[in-house]
């Protein structure tokens, strides 16, 4: 019997952060003039894939996609899809290989970092080494346990709880996918910032529990920090 030929295709998922370029005018001429005028501002997205956001453009218009693509590629950015378009506009875009993307807006733009030291930890990960300035650990789908210190400038994130048994001096974010029941536990609260399900708070040495063992929980829209009793 012949062995079944192996497929060369592998399908898997991935999450990517993309820049969104919002066009407020459909005219190609205006776009070209604008690009020429503020070329340096666009250098930020040079070489990057962008999604064209057409919220501000009349949904009944037939759009000059071919010219847009040419102009934008010349300027060094690569449109890979469109969003907020009418069905007709989406169809025309699809014909040119630009899919219609339906995603929600990111509320906060994250600044690109030169030397990312982000590690995605498996759920329930335990770290025995101190986390140092510039390091980030994210426990996707579970809790994160750090046995050593989380130093100033370091960041720990978890979909579930965050436990820090050394001093917590950096940032700790629990329930980052929106779990409001997530909590942060630490032996020494000296954090720059704590957050649960997107509700955050910055701290300083004035805080009554500064340097103490504490837990942080979320009640509605307020973070509560209470002492950890032995």
């Amino acid at each position: 019997m012949n062995p079944t030929p192996k497929s060369i295709l592998r399908l898997s998922g991935g999450v990517f952060t993309l820049s969104v370029l919002r066009l407020t005018d459909a005219s190609v001429k205006t776009l070209q003039a604008e690009l020429a005028a503020q070329g340096s501002a666009l250098r930020l997205v040079e070489g990057a894939a962008v999604v064209l956001d057409l919220t501000d453009i009349d949904p009944s218009l037939s759009l000059p996609y071919t010219e847009w693509l040419e102009t934008l590629r010349e300027a060094g950015c690569f449109p890979i899809g469109v969003r907020n378009v009418s069905d007709e506009q989406a169809e025309a875009a699809a014909a040119l290989g630009l899919p219609h993307l339906r995603g929600s807006d990111a509320k906060i733009a994250t600044a690109p970092s030169n030397v990312p030291l982000v590690t995605h930890a498996a759920a329930g990960s335990v770290f025995s080494q101190p986390l140092r300035s510039g390091q980030r650990q994210y426990a996707r789908g579970g809790d994160l346990v750090c046995l050593g210190a989380v130093n100033a400038g370091a960041e720990v994130l978890a979909d579930g709880h965050v436990h820090v048994y050394g001093p917590l001096r950096g940032r700790a974010l629990a329930g980052v996918q929106g779990d409001e029941s997530a909590r942060i536990f630490c032996q020494r609260l000296e954090a720059e910032l704590v957050a649960i399900a997107g509700v955050y708070m910055t701290l300083d040495a004035e805080h009554p529990l500064w340097g103490k063992a504490a837990q942080v929980s979320l009640d509605g829209e307020h973070l509560h920090i209470i002492a950890l009793e032995n």
Partner: peptide, 12 residues
């Protein structure tokens, strides 16, 4: 702070 950052890089 910068030394801390370098220690992280040494380890990674």
């Amino acid at each position: 702070r910068d030394s801390d950052r370098i220690l992280g890089i040494l380890a990674a």
